[in-house]
């Protein structure tokens, strides 16, 4: 009981501090709430590491989202190159974590969908995709950083890559004629068959577009939700922080889950789509 009281007092003190200090960091844009919100979510070339500290402007026209992409590349490559050692029978620390991610991708995404034989060649690609997306999504949850996957251009680029792979691998495995024949349904009249083939063909595009939009919307909306709760403190009343901060914390926690879940969904669907287009219908 005493411990609970102790924590409750701490939480109340933190909330009061947030309410007292927060107006000092309010954006100059004042009443332009949507502008303030989008300023924190959309791409730009400015980074503010801590409230009140000077704004860092990225050189050579590098955008924050581009910077986040390369930061995640550096982090992932660094983690892999420094922690994975050859011939280690009992991995420790980070190596265990990285191995478990790769095993997760292998056993829960690649092998169940593609099979062991075919999946072995694709494991590196899908593991990289999953780790890349997870890192970008999670980096965006660190205050002062931005989520690159909250930018439609980034998610579209990745979706286009998957779309091109669907075509290239499909045509390479099946041949051009069988690739399109694969879209044609069995046992229907030619008119309906051609119509369905047409729909299936455009389905390939829509699948990729949806893949891109799903990731973008989830990541963008999550951050927007957190910021919206916090902006309410400035818009309504500082005392609204008693409601807004717990909600923001809850949404933030949810965002951690969503960040990993969306990386998983993107990787899983990419794997399914590539497998679907590169395998004859009977063998799927």
């Amino acid at each position: 009981m005493r411990v609970r009281l102790h924590y409750s007092i701490k939480i109340i003190v933190v909330l009061i501090l947030i309410m007292v200090v927060s107006p000092a960091f309010a954006n100059d844009e004042g009443d332009d709430v949507s502008g303030t919100l989008f300023h924190h979510v959309l791409n730009g070339n400015e980074i503010t590491l801590f409230p009140g500290t000077p704004v860092i402007i990225l050189p050579y026209g590098i955008s924050v989202h581009g910077f986040m992409l390369f930061l995640s590349v550096v982090i992932i490559a660094g983690l892999f190159l420094f922690s994975i050692k050859k011939g280690v029978r009992k991995p420790r620390g980070m190596a265990v974590f990285l191995e478990s991610i790769v095993i997760f991708v292998r056993d829960d995404i690649v092998y169940p969908i593609m099979g062991r034989e075919k999946g072995e060649g694709w494991l590196a690609f899908f593991s990289t995709l999953f780790i890349f997306l997870s890192t970008i999504n999670l980096l965006g949850l660190i205050p002062a950083f931005k989520t690159a996957t909250g930018n439609i251009n980034v998610t579209s680029a990745l979706a286009i890559m998957v779309f091109l792979l669907m075509f290239i691998i499909g045509i390479k495995n099946l041949g051009l004629f069988r690739f399109f024949k694969n879209l044609y349904p069995e046992g229907v009249s030619p008119g309906i068959g051609i119509f369905v083939t047409f729909l299936e063909f455009f389905g390939l595009f829509t699948k990729s577009i949806v893949l891109s939009l799903r990731l973008f919307a989830n990541m963008f909306a999550g951050h927007l939700a957190i910021l919206s709760f916090l902006v309410l403190i400035f818009v309504i009343n500082p005392f609204f922080g008693f409601v807004a901060v717990p909600f923001a914390v809850f949404t933030y926690t949810l965002e951690v889950l969503v960040a990993l879940l969306q990386a998983f969904v993107f990787t899983l669907l990419s794997c399914i789509f590539i497998m679907m287009t590169s395998t004859p219908e009977g063998e799927q």
Partner: peptide, 25 residues
């Protein structure tokens, strides 16, 4: 940004495919 995304992913994939995954797998 889209091109940078491809480049970033390509670099990461190359590094992991060439140096990390053979050892890890």
């Amino acid at each position: 940004l889209a091109i940078w995304t491809w480049i970033a992913f390509g670099i990461l994939f190359f590094i992991l495919w060439k140096f990390a995954f053979p050892v890890l797998i």
